[in-house]
Design a protein around this nucleic acid. Sequence first.
DNA 1: GAGTAACCGAGACGGTACGTCTAGTCTTAAT
DNA 2: ATTAAGACTAGACGTACCGTCTCGGTTACTC
Lengths: 208, 208, 208, 208
Amino acid sequence: MATEPRDAVAGERGQRGRGRRPADEVRADVLRTVGEVLLTEGIADLTFERVARLSSVSKTTLYKWWPSKGALAMDGYFHAVQERLAFPDTGDIRADLISQLRAFARVMTETPGGRVLAELIGQAQTDPDLSAAFRRLYSSGRRALAGERLRRAQEAGQVRAEIDVRVLVDQLWGAVYHRLLIPDEPVTDDFIIALVTNLLDGIGFGDV
Amino acid sequence: MATEPRDAVAGERGQRGRGRRPADEVRADVLRTVGEVLLTEGIADLTFERVARLSSVSKTTLYKWWPSKGALAMDGYFHAVQERLAFPDTGDIRADLISQLRAFARVMTETPGGRVLAELIGQAQTDPDLSAAFRRLYSSGRRALAGERLRRAQEAGQVRAEIDVRVLVDQLWGAVYHRLLIPDEPVTDDFIIALVTNLLDGIGFGDV
Amino acid sequence: MATEPRDAVAGERGQRGRGRRPADEVRADVLRTVGEVLLTEGIADLTFERVARLSSVSKTTLYKWWPSKGALAMDGYFHAVQERLAFPDTGDIRADLISQLRAFARVMTETPGGRVLAELIGQAQTDPDLSAAFRRLYSSGRRALAGERLRRAQEAGQVRAEIDVRVLVDQLWGAVYHRLLIPDEPVTDDFIIALVTNLLDGIGFGDV
Amino acid sequence: MATEPRDAVAGERGQRGRGRRPADEVRADVLRTVGEVLLTEGIADLTFERVARLSSVSKTTLYKWWPSKGALAMDGYFHAVQERLAFPDTGDIRADLISQLRAFARVMTETPGGRVLAELIGQAQTDPDLSAAFRRLYSSGRRALAGERLRRAQEAGQVRAEIDVRVLVDQLWGAVYHRLLIPDEPVTDDFIIALVTNLLDGIGFGDV
DNA sequence: GAGTAACCGAGACGGTACGTCTAGTCTTAAT
DNA sequence: ATTAAGACTAGACGTACCGTCTCGGTTACTC
């Protein structure tokens, strides 16, 4: 039985007419295009106009679903990367931190996604909507994951009880972000190891 | 015979005609305007067009002296704030670090200049020229200052010799930047103190 | 049990749901809206989108019944004005012409309907459908009415037999339209009287 | 000596760069394009967007010089047609009127310019700026010319002294416009002749 | 009276044009 | 001669409307 005769006739991406298309199809086209533009050219070249042209979706539709360029970028980015930086728990907090920070650093410095993430953070400085979306969809979740692992280390007696583990997140991952966003110094493996060692062992003499 | 009625009427800040103006005068007008726009509206509203209009300087001149929006913003920003975050050296590295970080945090969170600095870092993510200028004119200098103070602490026996002090900059100031640029958590005084304490004393038990 | 809260609350002009509505009701709603828009804002602000919104009728339905904006405007206009410019026949062709032209001029210059009629003629210059509809529903009928009255005058010996009365329509009402559509000169009462006098008596000396 | 090396290299209408072009050159390009669009497609298809595309002139420039579509159309039309409908004066007013009306009718019905003029009048019904421009640049001048010829006829004793010659313009040319704008009846040569005859000789019996 | 087909509302969709803004280049007029 | 003024192209912005089409519901017929 001839189901969907029109699409069969239309050929690949042929004239679908002007009427309504299923929302899911449109959404998929858009996110694919956004992801491609972000990874190959960066957020500066991401415009509603270009996305509309490349994805054959009208500007009206884009503006209806994504209120700002930031929203579009966020959605397209996370649709494209789906990165799953697992948080290991072998029981050894020192090893686990180094392992996770290494993986994070590698993603940020060796994949196009890393640059895009930096650009998203950059745009968020002048786009409150993007800033909120970034925290909601990404950073707060990752911060929570790290916090949980550190709290388990606290319970296991590897980190002192009075320590506020939230601060550690800033002194480990935050330090990496610092070198990524203001690249005066490179992100090396020695740097990663030093981050963990400095914090766990302290940099003073213990009796200062 | 009234041959030049316009100039007669123009008077103060009137039509200066099209001829050459002293470079210093032009430069001062521009930087003042840039500073005002940055502090009152942010970097997103800073455009060559607006600066030309507000400062009565032609776009030609702007493009001649400042190759990009980032360059213009950097120049205008440092002309406006002239911030001099002195680096104290009382001999007590713990007290000095807390004192300096507190001052830094206060400037960043309580003055309009703080927001502009964050926006500059943001724009630098998609503007290599701005990124380079920022490091050259600001961050590398400040990083060096911090490094020197820490190295003196090392020589004074307050920080262990094998520590790479450059990493400490990222774990202290970098951690603050992290909370400023990705504001999941606030920059409080407890946070500042914890940063220093965690690093100097370590978060483990010393024998782990 | 409140099974149909919506309809109960909805009351007058409330959400009627999506089902079928009687065609007459829909048609009446549309024509009322079109008339209002035409008389208060003019044909330039008459759009399918607006009519659909204001009359709570879907665009689908509008396009089904009225193929073009012109058709919609024509229908709505004649539904709104229902003007009946009677054509008097007192036996005195001079008086009857002046009387009818006066009434026509008054309607055209002193009522909002006059402006709308001019705008309809204007739009018809670039809309063949509207042009045809206008002639079919309005102008040809009025032209015929005027022609009949003039023919009766001819039979009564008040207008010479060899005269083509259709031309007179253009020299009387057409002259008024001329001043309405290209308003270099105003439509005054003297103008109306002169129109009739010039034609009936001639402007020459009879022996030229 | 190689003058204009760039244009020579650029080839025909090649990349001129983005900078300023001489205003006259731009203006000529625009008016030529507008004239072509008007004469081949009509005023409905005349858009700023299309003119910008076809003439390689930016929309910014178009909007700067021509505040509305009507202004653009008027300017382009009169630049294209340059029609010079001379007003003959042989001393015989009857012959001169027929001659001029014939020429006018021929232009209006047999050239594309005629349709464009009708469309301009049509658009003017909803565009006050266009309406004013049309009267200023076209209709008032032509009305004045006709009025002068008729006044000379009056002085020559061919038209009675008490006649307001301005009304005659509406009863002659206005009648033609009527048949053009509301085409219930065609504009034939018999029609033209009847217009003049009816007015000069009157349609009554002289003693009515 | 239940089932069904016709129909309507709501509104998403691809296009096109709108009028404005900025970037960056280039010409011209004034000093 | 040099520079300021600003006209120019290119193209993105966000909005409105067009005419088409999908979908979910309701009404009014049919059996």
